[in-house]
Design a protein around this nucleic acid. Sequence first.
DNA 1: AAAGACACCTGGGAGC
DNA 2: TGCTCCCAGGTGTCTT
Length: 270
Amino acid sequence: MPELPEVETSRRGIAPHLTGQTIRQLIVRNAQLRWPIPDDLAAKVNGQEITQITRRAKYLLLALKQGAIMVHLGMSGRVRVVNAELPAEKHDHVDLVLASGQCLRFTDPRRFGSWLWHPSPRSEQLLSHLGPEPLTDEFNFDYLYPLCRNRKAAIKQVIMDNQVVVGVGNIYATEALFASGIRPTRSAQKVTQQQLKQLIQHIKRILAAAIEQGGTTLKDFTRSDGKPGYFKQALQVYGRAGEACDSCGSTIKTTRQGQRASAYCPSCQK
DNA sequence: AAAGACACCTGGGAGC
DNA sequence: TGCTCCCAGGTGTCTT
């Protein structure tokens, strides 16, 4: 997906256009996303004012006077604010039409995203088990160390576990581990305390830098204004298997963890 | 209880 | 040109 920086960039991009606006209509062209869009979602949101746009993990929450719309971008989702008259294209599944004449347009080729009503049993279920936000003080050594201390799983799997910390996807987990000199396959319990402290700092630093630069542009992601993010050029190992490590010149290798590619420098990461 | 496999879905690129 | 195969930012759920 869009990882956390992309979601946050989207939130910041759309918020000024949505906040304070009244919803005129919800157009659902294809309700078959990860979960079907609820049939009664349009009835619930129609005529309501959007009070604020917030984010929890990778969920965008469009808060209304009553309740909220909970949007997830999945792997290939994207939201943009466009003129409501702009013709919809193939993967433009949802439009949230505003009184301003603009609409929030949701595009998602793979349809792993979701639009749900919140609160609902499903939304509560999805949010209830989530760990802390990585950019808050709550995500610190005293929190993470006890979770790693007796855990045999690979450190990469642990930091990508939403119950441990949210918003660290494959790209940023890969990059933070490189920056910390930790092999992604290393058992969490064998990461030293010093390395764990560094890892936490690098996760925060890299996520913050990516947000600052508007997210990482890969295949599908563009910012809500349609401009690409600029972080991709800063990637040190992700997507660079076979190339030379910028730091030591060794060839970057790739392995698979949890059916997901994991790039690392065999020399810099032990 | 924890780790791994599989599921959802489309598009792009590599190789033949 | 076109076919087949593999891969991709996520994450809930089912199997070991």
